Amino acid sequence: MEPFVLRGPEATLSTPTPADVDRVAEVCADPEIATWTTVPSPYSRADAEGFVTQMVADGWANDMMFTWAVRPPGEVDGPVLAMMGISRTVGAPGEDQAGEIGYWTAPDARGRGLTTAAARLAADWALDPEGLGLVRLQWQAYVGNWPSRRVAWKLGFRSEGTLRQFGLQRGVLRDSWMASLLPEDPREPVEPWPAEAPRP
């Protein structure tokens, strides 16, 4: 599949380019991103180059992983504020297919609803029969990643519980939350699964 742009009133999603390498390297050095994602840690500029020029390009070329840089609305080449990805996980062409959504947000772009808006654009495309046509989109995060969980909850993902020792992070299995979104599900919170860390 050829890369394309997703546009919304709050964000523009376009593929990262070599011009974004320094920004990706800067953001992925953030300790929060290292804690909650599978990016290499410590993260180097070479890691960013490999991500942009190989991993992203191969994902689109193989029709398996679709990655966008999240930028300000109307700015196809604007600064990278977050990263958004949809990957196929189950099924072959002609069969029912499932996929997974993943994202990270730069420290200077957190707390303003940007990731939720971008994830909504990506999820709508992934579940649209005229888009990727998935019949199930799943979200998973390591237990304790409340910002990621809030985004999934706002989009209408339904909790499927905690999977013990499920998510692999740099050679270590960690407990993970799992939730799913189906094409017919409303894109708004539909159940009272906690979206905030419990108070001590």
Rank of each mutant, 00 (worst) to 15 (best):
Pro129Glu: 02
Met84Gly: 00
Thr115Gly: 02
Arg112Asn: 05
Ile86Lys: 01
Gly78Tyr: 10
Val24Leu: 09
Gln54Leu: 11
Asn145Tyr: 05
Ala141Pro: 05
Ala57Asp: 12
Arg112Gly: 13
Trp68Thr: 10
Phe157Gly: 13
Val24Met: 04
Asp77Phe: 07
Val143Ala: 05
Leu114Glu: 00
Met83Ala: 13
Arg164Tyr: 01
Arg71Ile: 02
Val24Tyr: 00
Tyr103Met: 04
Ala122Leu: 08
Thr53Trp: 03
Leu132Lys: 13
Gly102Met: 08
Trp104Pro: 06
Met55Cys: 03
Leu163Ala: 08
Ala98Lys: 10
Ala117Cys: 14
Pro40Leu: 02
Thr67Phe: 09
Glu75Ile: 05
Gly113Ala: 15
Arg158Pro: 00
Thr37Trp: 01
Ala92Thr: 15
Pro72Val: 02
Cys28His: 11
Arg150Gly: 15
Arg158Thr: 03
Ala48Asp: 01
Leu137Tyr: 02
Gly50Arg: 12
Ile101Ser: 08
Ile101Trp: 01
Gly144Cys: 03
Val27Phe: 05
Pro93Thr: 07
Pro31Val: 13
Asn62Gln: 15
Met55Tyr: 08
Pro42Trp: 15
Arg136Cys: 14
Gly74Leu: 06
Ala34Pro: 06
Trp139Asp: 01
Tyr142Cys: 12
Gly78His: 07
Ala34Arg: 09
Leu81Cys: 13
Ile86Asn: 06
Ala82His: 05
Pro73Trp: 02
Pro93Arg: 13
Asp77Trp: 08
Gly74Asn: 03
Ile101Pro: 00
Arg23Cys: 03
Glu160Leu: 10
Trp139Pro: 01
Asp128His: 04
Gln165Tyr: 00
Ala48Arg: 03
Thr115Pro: 05
